[in-house]
Design a binder for these strands. Structure first.
Lengths: 189, 189
DNA sequence: ACCACTATTATTACCTGGTACTAATAGTAG
DNA sequence: CTACTATTAGTACCAGGTAATAATAGTGGT
């Protein structure tokens, strides 16, 4: 035997996970076994065939993209009082973090806070013009970040100041002050 | 003729665009023509076959996710002098912007700047601890944002201050001051 | 040495969703 | 009636599989 069965199957799992686009034939040459062996392995491990894997990636990714880009809010908004306060929760996943130490990247926490601040404004258009943020504790993969946003002032000049505080449990991990420009309804008429 | 050719091809384009997972057979019954006609249409319109379309969606989406998550740097880094300065370019795509007005979301520009600032630090670990940013002009879909980062000071306490200025053409669209904590090499030994 | 058993490989028939090519047919305009 | 376009049909072939059956290699126990 080149490599024990169990070992090969473990590697097979990893290999396919990180490159779902690989064919049985390529896997066979890679592990120096026959195609049939690869297929038996896939059956045992319940790994679907190439085309199904690709299809899965295509549909899955469609959801994923929206979590970080197309969605109005990054994270799940669980409470919203327009022009007053809002709360969202974001679970930190491996792709949100540095692979070396599993610490969430700063801009992920910023994105959660910023999108929450924007969603809070009850206007046709809201744009961030300024932000002052502090990352008070590093957040790790698996932790759930609860962001709480509240409007601290509605200025006369069409801007609002919003404070966002993010917590993991009792601990504050992020504080941000955002100034948001709003295309106030009165103005636009 | 059920429906003129041109008309059918227009609908075909739309149909496939909003559901790339449809087979020629399904399209044939849908448009009440033969499979061959659908294939001629696809050839004329240069639409690839089902499997290629799915594959395309799968890899495209993969890239998108990485725009905000897995990549080390958001945007393309085109210049890097460690601990000194760095430049990256990011083209604003529809998914980076509000759909209503095609204006880039604030956290996208922040992410570009933040990741560039982190990449700039020549240390095992770098984490943003504070940021002060201004969005001086709104950026639209299709524009290319050039972010220029430079270290303004290496403090004794293991922190560095980095300034990032982002431009679209000659116009400054974003200014940010980041304070980054570095796990200095000397310290870790 | 022999048997049992597992792992591996080979072979064959069949499937989907196509490509590539050739040929026949229908409809329409000049 | 002819030329031309649009459509349909049919055949051979391909990738990347499923499913099932059988043969072979290697290993452990007694």
């Amino acid at each position: 035997m080149r490599v024990p069965k169990k070992e090969r199957q473990q590697e097979l799992l990893q290999t396919i996970e990180q490159n779902p686009f690989i064919t049985d034939e390529a896997l066979a040459t890679r592990f120096r076994v026959s195609i049939q062996t690869i297929r038996l392995d896939r059956m045992e491990l319940k790994i679907p065939e190439l085309r199904e894997r690709i299809k899965h990636v295509a549909t899955e990714r469609l959801d994923d993209v929206r979590t970080l880009t197309e969605n109005e809010v990054i994270g799940d908004m669980i409470d919203l009082k327009l022009d007053t306060s809002a709360i969202s929760i974001l679970e930190i996943l491996p792709e949100h973090a540095f692979s070396r130490n599993a610490i969430a990247r700063g801009h992920i926490l910023f994105a959660q806070a910023n999108s929450l601040a924007i969603a809070l404004i009850d206007d046709e258009l809201a744009l961030t013009t300024r932000a002052n943020v502090q990352f008070t504790r590093s957040v790790h993969v698996g932790e759930r970040v609860v962001a709480k946003a509240f409007v601290s002032s509605h200025r006369q000049d069409g801007r609002s100041d919003i404070t966002v505080e993010s917590y993991v449990g009792e601990e504050c991990v992020f504080i941000g002050e955002f100034t948001v420009y709003r295309s106030s309804k009165e103005e636009s008429k």
